[in-house]
């Protein structure tokens, strides 16, 4: 299970970053979608071919070509000379990184490259926060999947396989951003990732501080996904009952809600409920590795229960 907050993709509004040169020239246009923003940025700024972008997003090349030319039409006739909404740019880069965790074209590396350029140009704290967040997550990538493709939860990862260079750089970037005292959601999320990276073993994780940072993320974003992740952290810091209480009032149809509920019930010593909830959560998963992981969790608990009975 991934504990680090992912913010729900929202339609990107009205402003477009066009080039990393100058100070983020942006365009005020009509509403357009994250998919088209992502595609256009990868094509125009990232320099990827349409075929590569199509392969990365598993759509036919003709579809991606249309998406890109629609995005171009949307921004055509707009003058790119005003300083724009950097937040939109960061959101798009965040989307690219998040979706780029697998696939033939390494979109995660591409997102890091672009964010690094942006940090060099703007000295913006949140851009630095996003770069730190990406570096710290990227550092864990070699340990996130087993050779057979199955997911390895954070607590079970071989921390020796984390990339320490990326962690050092990520922590460095984050610390200098935090020192400027203009906190935003990416810095707060990066702080959580840094606290995980900082623990030599899962047991040494500073969950109390992680909960405090989740409080910040919730305050800054008011995102239900952040609340869900916070509940997991509360479960580790103050015990599963407290975690379950923190889930109270959250929409049960949130992605991963049932999986988190299962996890907390297992920690609370109720394997029967946990097994049922894991089995319920599996077909609701958003990816095949996640579905298989949850099925395996249910199977593990049921096997234990049979052994006991």
């Amino acid at each position: 299970m991934r504990y680090v907050s992912t913010v729900n993709p929202k339609p990107v509004r009205a402003k477009v970053w066009t080039t990393p040169s100058s100070s983020t020239s942006c365009a005020r246009t009509r509403r357009w979608t994250p998919a088209s923003a992502v595609a256009l940025i990868l094509r125009a700024v990232g320099g990827l071919t349409t075929r590569q972008i199509a392969a990365a997003y598993l759509v036919p090349e003709a579809t991606m070509a249309q998406r890109i030319s629609r995005a171009k039409r949307t921004v055509s006739g707009v003058r790119f000379n005003q300083v724009g909404d950097l937040g939109t740019v960061l959101r798009v880069l965040y989307l690219v990184f998040n979706e780029g965790y697998s696939g033939d074209v390494d979109l995660a590396a591409e997102a890091i490259r672009l964010t690094r350029q942006l940090v060099g140009k703007t000295r913006d704290e949140e851009a630095a926060g996003l770069l730190a967040l990406m570096l710290l997550h990227h550092a864990r990538r070699p340990a996130r999947t087993a050779p057979d493709g199955s997911l390895v939860p954070l607590a079970d990862q071989d921390r020796g396989r984390w990339n320490t260079h990326l962690i050092v750089e990520g922590v460095d970037v984050l610390q200098s951003a935090l020192a400027r005292d203009r906190l935003g959601e990416y810095q707060a999320q990066a702080a959580i990732a840094a606290l995980h990276a900082d623990a030599r073993t899962a047991e040494e994780t500073d969950w109390v501080q992680i909960v405090e940072w989740y409080d910040e993320v919730v305050r800054l974003t008011d995102s239900p996904v952040a609340r869900l992740n916070r509940a997991v952290a509360v479960g580790e810091a103050d015990g599963p009952r407290a975690g379950l209480a923190a889930l109270d009032g959250l929409d049960r149809t949130l992605p991963r809600h049932t999986a988190v509920l299962a996890y907390l019930h297992e920690r609370d010593g109720d394997p029967v409920t946990a097994a049922r909830l894991y089995a319920e959560a599996a077909p609701l998963a958003s990816s095949l590795p996640e579905r298989d992981h949850l099925t395996r969790q249910a199977a593990r608990l049921n096997a234990q229960l049979r052994g006991r009975g």
């Binding site: 089995a279 599996a282 077909p283 249910a298 199977a299 593990r300 049921n302």
Partner: peptide
């Protein structure tokens, strides 16, 4: 099908398998 197909010969819900059996199936 998750549901709706005639019953399989070895018809045990997946969460009742062992974790190793789940892994073998995925592989």
């Amino acid at each position: 099908h998750y549901r709706g197909a005639p019953a399989a010969v070895n018809d045990v819900p997946m969460d009742q398998w062992t974790p190793e059996e789940v892994s073998a199936h995925v592989k």
